[in-house]
Design a binder for these strands. Sequence first.
DNA 1: ATGAAAGCGCTAACAT
DNA 2: ATGTTAGCGCTTTCAT
Lengths: 345, 345
Amino acid sequence: MKKGHQVTMKEIAKKLGFSVSTISRALKDSPELHPDTKKKIVDMAKEMNYQPNLLAQSLRISRTNTLGVIVPEITSHFFASCISGIQDYANKRGYNVMICQSNETLDLEIANIRTLVSSQVDGLLISLSRETNQYDHLFDIYNREIPFLLFDRVNEDIPVSRVTFNDEGGAYQVTKYLLETGCKRVMYVSGPEDLYISKKRKEGYIHALNEFGIELDSDLVKISDLTTEGNINIAKEIANMKTRPDGVFCMIDPVAIDILTFWKSIGIKVPEDMALAGFTNNPTSAVVEPPLTTVAQPGYEMGKLAVSHLLDQLEGIASDDPISIVLETTLVPRQSTKALSKNEK
Amino acid sequence: MKKGHQVTMKEIAKKLGFSVSTISRALKDSPELHPDTKKKIVDMAKEMNYQPNLLAQSLRISRTNTLGVIVPEITSHFFASCISGIQDYANKRGYNVMICQSNETLDLEIANIRTLVSSQVDGLLISLSRETNQYDHLFDIYNREIPFLLFDRVNEDIPVSRVTFNDEGGAYQVTKYLLETGCKRVMYVSGPEDLYISKKRKEGYIHALNEFGIELDSDLVKISDLTTEGNINIAKEIANMKTRPDGVFCMIDPVAIDILTFWKSIGIKVPEDMALAGFTNNPTSAVVEPPLTTVAQPGYEMGKLAVSHLLDQLEGIASDDPISIVLETTLVPRQSTKALSKNEK
DNA sequence: ATGAAAGCGCTAACAT
DNA sequence: ATGTTAGCGCTTTCAT
């Protein structure tokens, strides 16, 4: 299939007997032009259905007004929300967005960066893949002075701005809530230990335990590979423990939901036998039975804030010095945990 | 923030004492070059961390190897799956993808098309917004010979290829299943009547009724605006009917889930009091209580097929003549409907 | 086997 | 108020 011909300034110029520069000036509403000329040109451009060639323009002004976004997975509701926030806000400020997914692999993450850089995006918003445990590709674009920041899945060693949730605080909130609602042995089901959120949420978990005078018990920390099989294995392990926990806090909702599903299938009652809580507030967490207590992370807001800061840096509104933006999370108590004795919500 | 400098062919040329054209040839592995020269250049390019400027290249060859995608909503799991399929497959064929969302508005749909066309994408994959009820913008790009196709939310009057699910067939399957499992009065809760899928799924519904010798009863067709409030209103209406239906087929899962939630809150039992079924197989439909009988639409597959056909057309592998690709859906029986009496699945 | 030159569509500095 | 010219980084014909 051959693409149809696009009208160029040259053609308008020819038709009207002006030079190309006059056309260019008229179309960007330059003040030094005769109003009549301007009108004639603008009308003709409309008539001929002229659309500027952004490629040529970008090449000339060496700015594309386009940002690149890399997320691990577009089908994750959380990242989709981030993207939505990024796009809406970027558009509002006159920028376009190119979105890529790394499918949670380092190789694709690297390839995506290459492509976006080659496409001359003005800046990048990156959320790291689960697999990413070395950071040469990020130091590389850092050294090449390509503006970027990290959001949600970040690494603290790279000297760029990052936008995260208060993961420690959220985990503290939910662990504390489990303890307040009567749990004595609260377990933490983590993801792979090198993940930023695994670490941060564990800190919040420990923080809450300590506040209740409880020592960290290594039997009460399990690590899932975050696959459904892995999660179910953890669910089995817990079910088979001599002394089961009475509350389980999972690093992310899908883990909690897999565990819940398995437990239901073998007759374990939630929250009567064990209370269960997740993190993220995925749409599914609200509709499982019983609805899952979790911690809400507003993804749309995160995307908006992240892109807003990057654009501020690009446009010299914000300093280039890296900053850390931390969004607060909200505890969402539901029926998978016991209710507070007094002020039951 | 100022973007760092990017290495150009000119710089490699200068460093090595060759002309720019020789660099260009070496980097695209032209056969008419001396192997030593080629090696020297390729090595140097790597050493200097050269990355081609896709903007310049695209301007020159007037092809961007980039496709534009417009979906109503990125946060919808179904469309996220489509995008995922589009991106994975497009990348495999050496294309990039720019994604835009119309947020279900005609204005943004038009704006997105403008932007993508200005960005010189080689082709477009479009899924129409709910609001889109006039098609000038599509006829416009059709007349300008910009290759595009429609998927999922299509319009049949535009002479371009379209990729859809067999909506009629899916609705037939699920209505038939409701009737087979003992329902006598099956209701259809539709979306706005000008939506393509509203119409198609109604056809399937009627088809199944007819097969069971049942006349279409206009009391048993309700139209929701697809907002949560609208859905709940329908749920109330149904609950208050003198003669309630004994089975309800909703055009999309979220409608069914809103209805289910409301019914549960007022003590209506599903499927005992009324059976309930949806369409799409959203992740939530599997985890509600009871799990929702629905019709699965493989979004990833749809995306893949759509982009594959468009690329085939672009590259002259497929004819430019519009075709209609129809994907089959799969009934997913769950506990929100009664089981088949004999061969219970 | 390599180089020179033209040009993709646009902008902007420099004329006039 | 408008035109001329150069050039963004690249590819490609034509020349040698």
